[in-house]
Amino acid sequence: MLKSLMDFIDGLAPADGAAAGRAPSLQLAAAVLLVEVMRADADHSLVERRAVHRALTELFPLSETQVDVLITQAESAARMATDLFAFTSPIDERWDMPAKLRIVELMWSVAYADGKLSDIERHTMWRLADLLHVPQGAYVHARMRARAAAGLGEDA
C-alpha cells in the first residue's frame, strides 16, 4: 500500500513542473483546475473541498488517500502557479470535448457547493472554460446541469 502511494506521488509532476519544462500529469492538472475554483472566493469552505474530492473520485480511479494527496499537491501547485495555461493545456490537448465538458460541469459543482456563486468564481469558470476551448453554449449547459444538481434555482 505504501509503495503504491509513493509510486502515485512520484508520478505526479512537481508543483513547479511547468517551470522545469515538465508538464503536470492529467490528474494533477484536473485537480489544480478544481482547486482553483475552490480558491476563487475568499471563503473556501469544507463543503467546497468535499466537492473537489468527490469530483476527483468521479474523474479518476483513485483511493481516498491518493485523492487527498492529489488535492494537497494541487493546492501547492495552484499557489505557486503564475498562470493556469500549464494546467489547462494538457487537458485541452489530450481530452475530447465530452471529457472537457465533464470537468467544466464538475468545476461548476465546486463553485455551487456552498450554495452561492461569487463574481470571482463566475470569472474563474469563464477563464478556465475559455482556456479549455469549450464552446459558450456547452459551457452554459454544463453550468445549468451543475446548478440543477446542486438544487439551486434560476437566480443562483
Rank of each mutant, 00 (worst) to 15 (best):
K116T: 07
T88F: 06
L128D: 07
P61V: 09
M38C: 13
L106M: 03
R39A: 10
E105S: 05
Q73E: 14
A81L: 08
Q27T: 01
E105A: 07
V32P: 01
E58R: 15
R49K: 05
P24T: 02
E75Q: 14
H123Q: 14
F60N: 00
G115E: 09
M80C: 12
T124I: 08
P98F: 14
A30N: 04
W108A: 04
V69D: 07
R102Q: 14
H53F: 10
D119C: 04
S25H: 02
M80I: 00
D92Q: 15
F85A: 06
P90V: 06
F60A: 03
V37W: 00
R102T: 13
F60V: 07
S63F: 05
V104T: 09
A55R: 04
A81F: 10
V69T: 07
A113I: 01
T57R: 14
A74W: 15
T65S: 15
T82M: 04
V104E: 04
V69K: 06
D114V: 09
F60L: 08
A111W: 02
T88Q: 00
R102P: 09
R127A: 02
V67M: 11
V47N: 01
D114C: 07
D41Y: 04
I120K: 00
L59S: 06
F85R: 05
S45D: 11
A81D: 11
A42K: 10
P98H: 13
M125K: 07
A29T: 01
I103P: 11
V110T: 05
L106Y: 01
A81Y: 01
R54V: 03
K116I: 02
L46G: 10
V47I: 14
D114N: 12
P90A: 08
A31V: 02
S76K: 11
Y112S: 12
K116E: 11
A113Y: 02
P90T: 09
W95Y: 12
F85E: 03
D92A: 15
